[in-house]
Design a protein around this nucleic acid. Structure first.
Lengths: 157, 157
DNA sequence: GCAGATTATATAAGCAGCTTAAATTTGTAG
DNA sequence: CTACAAATTTAAGCTGCTTATATAATCTGC
């Protein structure tokens, strides 16, 4: 099979896809507005990642940075904005007071779930046109790519 | 199958992958340096996209913008930088002098091919661990996503 | 053929999201 | 208790995009 062509097509598609993904869609703002959160909230992919990560329990800023593959200051920034809009809360880890634990504000877990759901609607739609095998292969591909690019970029320490 | 989980995983993976892809790898700079082009060139995914698009023939700035899914000023900027480093050239379309046609500088076609090849090495590596079916499903998935997000974001005209 | 609208590109200004470097606070080990 | 290490934040800066505006070339209707 012509792998070259597939690689080239991916190289063309990936950045374009990313620009689309990063473009803030107004969808979830309506959702937020209905709950009394500011209407002009711009939920970026990074924020969505934080909301998803927190669904599995509280996280320290450092853990978030690592899970998202960003620097600690970037994680601080993401948490700042979510906290500003009353979505998440910081509190000190009693075991180690250097650590800042991030968690949903009480009652915001459900709101977060809805925001994430809205955000992933196009993704969900796209995936509903794949067979199970294709969907699995797609995610496997993403994992492989992240791993491969990670090895190329990150591991020069 | 648990599509929800796959969607969530994709939502976590995509932005992380993008940050990795966008991180400029020094690989291709060495390649450029050997050809007498400035060493501090930073080849971004957008520039790679332009180089790939030009492999199929000269393009106007507007066509590039459309192919990449960016605004015309963004395309102008990408071309600016590539031209600055002697990779591409502008010349007027004799048929319509408003149009600026972009093409490789003579002899740079081959250099571009090598730059693109270096840039896609991690991608190539990742794809070599997929079966043919998986690779096809992966690219199909990317296409579906781009289409789906495009419909969600772009078609509000 | 020419005034006015349209199209293609470029310039200008500004913003979001990341980075590295330095500062602050807390923990740990000799 | 001193000195170093670790977690987070603050500060400064860069890149890649955006929209709004400017400029130049083309098309249209009279």
């Amino acid at each position: 099979m012509d792998r070259e062509r597939l690689v080239d097509e991916t190289l063309m598609l990936l950045p374009t896809l990313m620009r689309l993904v990063e473009r803030p869609s107004p969808v979830e703002m309506g959702e937020i507005a209905r709950r009394g959160v500011a209407t002009d909230v711009q939920v970026s992919p990074g924020h969505i990642q934080v909301l998803i990560a927190l669904a599995r329990g509280p996280r320290s800023v450092g853990q978030l940075a690592e899970e998202l593959g960003v620097s600690p200051p970037a994680a601080t920034q993401l948490v700042d904005k979510l906290a500003e809009h009353g979505m998440v809360d910081r509190h000190n880890d009693p075991a180690d007071r250097r650590v800042v634990l991030v968690d949903y504000v009480a009652g915001m877990r459900e709101v977060a779930r809805r925001i994430v759901r809205d955000r992933r609607r196009p993704l969900h739609d796209a995936m509903s046109e794949m067979t199970d095998g294709e969907a699995l292969a797609f995610v496997k591909g993403l994992r492989l790519l992240a791993q491969s690019f990670g090895a190329a970029a990150g591991e020069e320490i």
